[in-house]
């Protein structure tokens, strides 16, 4: 079971809890986790990554286990603690704006 923590705006948009629990078959990567998240909540398509290029939106970051994984390859394995479900993957929105 993969745990993903959503920023408040996306919780509201998807009518989801702060933490979403997902089953991911096979390799646990940014791409497979986000694919599973978007399959569960289709309204999130395009809000975390570009729907065509799949690039992360510039004002969002991915954190897990105290590390910033935003610049990792989307097909790189996520930390084992995320794959085991003991640590969440955090989608964090930049603190900006007024």
């Amino acid at each position: 079971m993969i745990r993903v923590i959503l920023p408040l705006e996306l919780q509201r948009l998807a009518a989801a809890e702060r933490e979403v629990r997902l089953d991911v078959a096979g390799a646990v990567t940014q791409r497979t986790v986000l694919d599973a998240l978007e399959a569960r909540h289709p309204v999130l398509r395009g809000t975390i990554r570009d729907p065509v290029t799949k690039r992360r939106r510039p004002f969002l970051r991915f954190f897990a286990c105290g590390d910033d994984l935003s610049l990792e390859e989307s097909d790189a394995p996520l930390p084992e603690a995320v794959a085991r479900g003991t640590e969440p993957l955090r989608i964090v929105a930049a603190i900006a704006g007024g």
Binding site: P7, E9, L10, L13, V43, R45, G46, T47, P51, L60
Partner: peptide, 22 residues
């Protein structure tokens, strides 16, 4: 932060449904 969402209502804005954003 999160890009574009298109919302649609069929009851004058009481309830909404997100539709296509591509």
């Amino acid at each position: 932060w999160f890009g574009q969402i298109i919302q649609r209502s069929d009851d004058g804005g009481r309830t909404w449904e997100a539709v296509g954003n591509q």
